[in-house]
Simulated assay, not measured.
Amino acid sequence: MARDVHDFVGRELTLLTVRSEVLSMRARETAYGPDFEELADTARRAHLVLNEIIVQRGERSATPGVDGLRALAEESGRAGSPVRLTMDPDVRELSPLRQAAVYRVVQECLTNAAKHAHGEPIDVSIAVDGTQLRITVGNALPARVPGRAPVSAGSGTASMAERVQSLGGTLEATRTEDAYLVVATLPRG
């Protein structure tokens, strides 16, 4: 099954990369050139990650810790959704396992915001309060516009919850008519 995923998804990512590179070349002298190049870079990175996860799964590098959050926030901002990141200094003292959980929860929340609330600011807060670690990510939801629905299987939130629960914590994702909020709480460890 992993090989099939690699072959089918890898093919689509390759086509996306090539097509966005062609568009980047055609738009080089326009204001859209950098956007298409960034799209091509994103597709290339996705293809590399796919290879790391499926093909080289035993040799895969570790998940970045909280030091990788700034880069995630900057990438989200370049894609059109600015991130306000607030992080207690004590978060850097968390174990690598908990830091990886923080990173993955924030990464998934930013991905969901890009799909469902593109352009809306995203507030990310990571706090340590005594024995508890709390990750809060929220964003407004734009008015629904008719058109294509975002590609989403809904498995990202389940995956986040599973990761947090495996560390003895809880995850709550709440959607209202105009906002989305994820709150994960887990033992500091």
Rank of each mutant, 00 (worst) to 15 (best):
A2H: 14
A2Y: 12
R3C: 07
D4A: 13
V5R: 15
H6P: 10
D7M: 06
V9Q: 08
L13T: 00
L13W: 06
L13I: 00
T17Q: 15
V18C: 10
E21M: 08
V22W: 03
S24F: 03
M25D: 14
R26H: 10
R26V: 07
E29D: 15
Y32Q: 12
G33Q: 01
P34G: 01
D35I: 05
E37W: 09
A40C: 09
T42L: 06
T42Y: 01
R44N: 13
H47S: 14
V49Q: 04
V49F: 01
V49N: 02
L50C: 09
L50K: 05
L50W: 04
N51Q: 11
E52I: 00
E52Y: 05
E52H: 13
E52Q: 06
E52P: 11
I54W: 04
I54C: 04
I54Y: 08
Q56F: 08
R57Q: 13
G58V: 00
R60C: 04
R60H: 06
S61Y: 13
S61D: 15
S61T: 09
T63A: 05
T63G: 03
D67I: 06
G68P: 15
G68I: 03
L69P: 03
A71G: 11
A71R: 15
E75D: 15
E75C: 09
R78K: 15
G80Q: 07
S81K: 09
R84H: 11
L85S: 01
L85P: 08
T86H: 13
M87E: 01
D90A: 13
R92C: 00
R92W: 03
E93A: 15
E93P: 13
S95G: 12
R98C: 03
Q99I: 05
A100W: 01
A101D: 04
A101W: 06
Y103Q: 02
Y103D: 02
R104D: 13
R104V: 08
V106K: 12
V106P: 11
V106H: 09
Q107E: 10
L110V: 00
A114H: 08
K115A: 11
K115T: 00
A117M: 13
H118R: 14
H118V: 03
G119N: 07
I122K: 03
I122E: 00
D123P: 15
D123E: 13
D123K: 14
V124I: 06
S125E: 07
V128G: 05
D129Y: 06
G130Y: 13
G130N: 03
G130M: 05
G130H: 06
T131L: 13
I135V: 14
V137I: 00
G138S: 14
L141K: 14
L141F: 04
L141C: 11
A143G: 14
R144V: 12
G147S: 05
A149Q: 11
V151Y: 03
A153P: 02
A153E: 15
G154F: 11
G154M: 10
G154H: 00
S155W: 09
S155P: 10
G156L: 05
G156V: 01
T157K: 12
A158H: 06
A158R: 15
M160N: 01
A161I: 02
A161Q: 14
A161P: 02
E162W: 11
E162Q: 14
R163Y: 01
V164Y: 02
V164Q: 04
V164E: 02
S166V: 01
S166A: 09
L167W: 07
G169V: 12
G169H: 05
E172D: 14
A173Y: 08
T174E: 12
T174Q: 14
D178E: 08
V182A: 04
A184M: 04
A184I: 10
L186A: 10
